[in-house]
Design a binder for these strands. Structure first.
Lengths: 331, 331
DNA sequence: GCTATATGTAATAACGTTCTCACATTTTAG
DNA sequence: CTAAAATGTGAGAACGTTATTACATATAGC
C-alpha cells in the first residue's frame, strides 16, 4: 500500500498537520518533532501525493505544451527550451502534437483543461480565433502563443522577426545578382508564412525591382508537396536562378527537386531557407539559411507563462526575437 | 469561478451522483434527467476536474516519458510513437529530459512518482540498477525500458537487435574489402553500446579476421568528442579505410573529422553509422546506415506499458525489433 | 506578577470527484 | 396479486492533502 501523510503522522506520534508543515516547510515545528518526522519519512519512504496537494492548492505545477510535431527539429528544440525553464521553476510538462489539425488541437486543449494544467504554451494550428482558445481565455488560464499569432487573441506571443529575416535573405540573393528568385511557402492561414512572404516582397521593393509573381508558390506543409512545387518551378520558362524556402520542410523538398533536375547548388541554382538545422551545416554544399533562436524562443515562452502564473498582470506582450542570417555555400 | 459538478446538479435539480453517472456513462439514469443534465452541462460549459477524479480513482491516465534529450531526432521519433498510442488510449504524456545525468534522472523519476503517473517509459541513463528505479518497482508502478537494458531490472524492455545490426554493417564493409575498420562508440556503461561493439567483433570473427583493436575507440556522448576521437583515428599509422559509428552523434562527428582531414567519402574512406536520419538521405554522399524502427519502438513501448496498466501479469518481455541496413553511397 | 507575543500542536473543514449504500419506484414473472 | 427483479435517485463517505482555527505553553517586556 501507498504510505500517506497520516501513517507518517501516526508513526511519529504527531498530527498530519505537523507532518504537512515539515514537508511544506512552513509554520512552526519543534526541532525535536521535525527530526523525528524526517526520520519517519525516510524510514517509510514517504512521497507526498501531488494530486491531493493539487486538489487543495488548486494548482498542479504542470504546464501544457501543444506543438504540431515533435519530430520536426524546430519543435524539438522549442520543447527543450520550454522544458528547461519549466523544470527549473518546478513545473512539469505535458506534451501533445496536433499535426496542424484543428480538431486534434481542440481535443488536446480540452483534455489539458480537464487535467487542470496551470497554463498553456501553444503553437496554434490556425490564425483564426477558435472556440477552444476562447475557452482557455474565458477560464483565465494563462496562455502563451509561440511562432504564430492568432487574430484577436490578446496574450503573450513569442515569435521571430519573420519579415526582416526573409527580407535579409532575399536581399542577399538580389545583391548577388539574382532577379528570378522563387519563393515557396505553405499554409497562408499561418501568420508566420505571410510575414516571410512579406519579407520576400519587401526585399524586391527595397531594391526597386518588380516581384516575379510567377515564381511565388504556396504548397502543403510537407516535404513532398514542396518537392512537387519546386520541381514545377524549375520547368517554368525563364526558370528561377535562386529559391527561397519558408521553412525546413520546404528546404528539404527543394534540395531534392533541384538535385533530381540534375542541377548543382550553387553553380546552377542558389538556395536559401528559413530555419537552420544541424543538417544545413553538414550538408554539402553547406546551406545558407535564416537561423531562428528556437531554443531561446522556448525559454522565453516558458518565462512569460510562468510570470503570468505568478500573477503578473501587465498587458500582453508580442516578443520578437531576431533571426540570424548564416551565410554558407549554397548561393 | 470554475463550475463544479454540484452546480450542474443544482441547476438540473438532481444530485451530484446522478450527474456523475451521466458524465461517467454508467449506472441507471432516467432519460429525462439525462437530457436535462446534458443540456445544463453544455449551458454552464462544465468540464469535469480530472484531478479530483484521479483522487478517488487512484489513477491519473498519465504516463511519464523520460528520455535523455528530445533534441536528438532518435528520441523525438520515439516520443512521437509513444505519444500516438498513449493518446489513442486516453493517456497524456509528461515529458522530461535527463541529459544522461543520473542525478537528474532520479529527480525526474521522483517528481513523476509524486505526480502519480500511472506508469513510466524510460531510457535509463545507466545500466546499473539505481535506487530510484528500485523505488518504482517497489511501488509496483509499471515501468517499460526503451533502447537500453538495466541489470536485474525485470520489466519489459524494447530494444533493437543491436549486435546483429552492427554485425551486418561491419560484415558489409569487410565484404567490400575493408580490413582496417575503425569503430567509435560512447559510454560503455550503456548496454546498447556494448552490443554494437559485440556486433563489430562478431563480424570480424565470422570472417575469420583479427580485430584491429587499435581502431576501436570510445568517447563521450557528444559530437565534439566523436569528432576528436575520429580525428585522432585518422592520424594513426596505417589508418582505417572505413569507420563504423555507434550512433547519430558519433556519425556527425566522424563526417566532420573526415572532411576536415581533407578526405573524400567514399573515395578515401568509407562510413557507416547506426541510426538513420532524414539527414543521411539528404547528405552528399548519401550515408549508408543501420536504420532503427524508432517510431515503432515508441509505439510498442507504449503498448506494453498500457497492457501492464490494464493489469496484464505475464512475465517481463524483452522485445527486439529488427534494424534495417540501408545501403547508400558512403562505402 | 501579569500581559503580550512568540512558538508549537491538533482538530477539522475544505478541494471536486466517484462509489457504495439505502431506499424508492416501476416492471416482470409466476 | 404478490414477490422478485430492474430501474432510478440521493446521501454521504472516501481519496490525501493543506489551511484555518483554536488552544496550549513558553518567553519576553514592563
Amino acid at each position: 500500500m501507498k504510505v500517506t501523510i497520516k501513517e507518517v503522522a501516526k508513526k511519529a506520534g504527531v498530527s498530519a498537520s505537523t507532518v504537512s508543515r515539515v514537508v511544506g516547510n512552513y509554520g512552526y515545528v519543534g526541532e525535536k518533532n521535525r527530526k523525528k518526522i524526517l526520520a519517519v519519512i525516510r524510514e517509510l519512504d514517504y512521497h507526498p501525493n501531488a494530486i491531493a496537494r493539487s486538489m487543495v492548492k488548486k494548482s498542479t505545477s504542470t504546464i501544457g505544451l501543444v506543438i504540431t510535431d515533435i519530430t520536426n527539429p524546430f519543435f524539438a528544440y522549442l520543447a527543450r527550451g520550454v522544458e528547461e525553464v519549466a523544470w527549473q521553476h518546478g513545473y512539469t510538462l505535458i506534451l501533445a502534437n496536433t499535426d496542424e489539425d484543428l480538431t486534434k488541437e481542440q481535443a488536446i486543449v480540452s483534455a489539458l483543461l480537464e487535467k487542470q494544467v496551470d497554463g498553456l504554451i501553444l503553437v496554434p494550428a490556425s490564425s483564426s480565433p477558435t472556440p477552444h482558445l476562447q475557452e482557455v481565455l474565458k477560464r483565465e488560464m494563462p496562455l502563451t502563443l509561440v511562432d504564430r499569432r492568432v487574430k484577436d487573441c490578446l496574450v503573450d506571443v513569442i515569435m521571430v522577426n519573420n519579415q526582416d529575416g526573409a527580407r535579409q535573405a532575399v536581399a542577399y540573393l538580389i545583391e548577388r545578382g539574382h532577379r528570378r528568385i522563387g519563393m515557396v511557402y505553405d499554409n497562408p492561414e499561418i501568420s508566420t508564412n505571410m510575414e516571410r512572404l512579406a519579407g520576400y516582397r519587401e526585399a524586391f521593393r527595397d531594391a526597386g525591382l518588380t516581384i516575379p509573381e510567377d515564381l511565388v508558390r504556396s504548397c502543403q506543409y510537407t516535404q513532398q508537396s514542396a518537392y512537387a512545387v519546386v520541381a514545377q518551378l524549375l520547368k517554368v520558362e525563364n526558370p528561377p536562378t535562386a529559391i527561397f524556402t519558408a521553412n525546413n520542410f520546404m528546404t528539404l523538398g527543394a534540395v531534392k527537386a533541384v538535385r533530381e533536375a540534375g542541377l548543382q547548388i550553387p553553380t546552377h541554382i542558389a538556395l536559401v531557407g528559413f530555419d537552420d538545422l544541424d543538417w544545413n551545416e553538414y550538408n554539402l554544399p553547406q546551406l545558407t539559411s535564416v537561423a531562428q533562436p528556437v531554443h531561446e524562443m522556448g525559454k522565453v515562452a516558458a518565462q512569460r507563462l510562468i510570470a503570468r502564473l505568478k500573477g503578473e498582470k501587465t498587458p500582453p506582450l508580442e516578443i520578437r526575437l531576431n533571426t540570424r542570417f548564416i551565410i554558407r555555400q549554397s548561393c
